[in-house]
Design a binder for these strands. Structure first.
Lengths: 172, 172
DNA sequence: CCAAACTGTTTTAAGCCTAAAATGTTTTCC
DNA sequence: GGAAAACATTTTAGGCTTAAAACAGTTTGG
């Protein structure tokens, strides 16, 4: 229950933000709930991937990115898409090349760049896993109505935009 | 765009689920968006904790759990609350005891059990960090209206319940 | 009583992950 | 042209994380 006065104080005139210690308990609880949901689902998916296919979640995620890019991606692209560090991708790719799921080659036009693709084996295995994976997700969300799903999509889009804006404020 | 026929087929009579390969693209997109939001916010919080306080996110999370339990918690409790493995907690606690933030002692009534608490230093540092942390979260979610927050809370509660049910189906 | 089942924690082995520094390559722009 | 900036990737050092096995203590049921 945020006091209505807080909003009024925050909006008044051109003066700098009022220094009243505000109550942000609701946002904090929202963040913890968001984190709980993600951790719960992520753990479940991780376990099923391991049990059914003996594959890790990061490997699956990387293959998912590549499946959408038949012409391959650079390591930087992958790193941005997966929102993980560059060094992380290096190791992940190493292991997937080793196991025959990925093909990696140096770009001919820019020798800094490594382009990676799924191999035939990699694509086949990924498709097989992805089909089952989709049913797991459907089951995990199965109590939500189509309207719930739409509404969540909308609110999470707004959340994402808000967080990106906030992050940009700190790192202009 | 899910075909309306899918829903009709699923609901017809008592027959077992129809084997039509269904379209769960919406749920999949929802899951990816949820994951994106969490990753984005988590990364932001992690970076700020490191820059401002030179502390890692898992250490902060563990201290947050203990701050809510003045009489201490067992490692198992912490592990369940944080939704991480037991072994993970062991190492985390080790480092926080080493740095003087945690106190750890064997329970007198059950010698298997380790009870951990925040030290005076640990509590003071945590409170300092938590105050700032709360403003970061508020800022990250600042584009959401109070109504958005309430609605998200409600939908995520439903999501959590759905996922827990699904997980329980596989591991009864 | 005491063996078996159970519970709480630690250890192990392997992989994931990050931030920061280092390396090699290309672009910019004077 | 060549120094400086920018870029892509790898390396490094350290911490996080998991699943499974091992260990230690407690409870239970014959």
């Amino acid at each position: 229950m945020p006091a209505a006065s807080d909003c009024i104080e925050m909006l008044d005139s051109e003066t700098k933000a009022v220094e009243t210690p505000e109550d942000h308990a609701e946002e904090l609880r929202l963040w913890l709930r968001l984190l709980t949901c993600t951790t719960l689902i992520e753990g479940e998916v991780r376990g099923r991937l391991r049990q059914r296919f003996d594959v890790t979640l990061p490997r699956f995620d990387l293959m998912a990115q590549l499946d959408k890019a038949p012409d391959g991606m650079t390591l930087s692209d992958v790193s941005k898409r997966m929102m993980v560090s560059n060094g992380n991708v290096t190791g992940l790719v190493e292991r997937l090349v080793e196991s025959g799921h990925l093909d990696r080659r140096t770009s001919e036009t820019d020798r800094r760049v490594q382009v990676i693709r799924l191999t035939k084996l990699g694509r086949a295995e990924f498709r097989r896993m992805a089909a089952e994976h989709e049913t797991w997700i459907a089951d995990l969300f199965s109590d939500l109505t189509p309207k719930d799903v739409r509404e969540l999509m909308r609110l999470l889009a707004k959340t994402k935009a808000s967080a990106q804006k906030s992050a940009a404020r700190r790192r202009p």
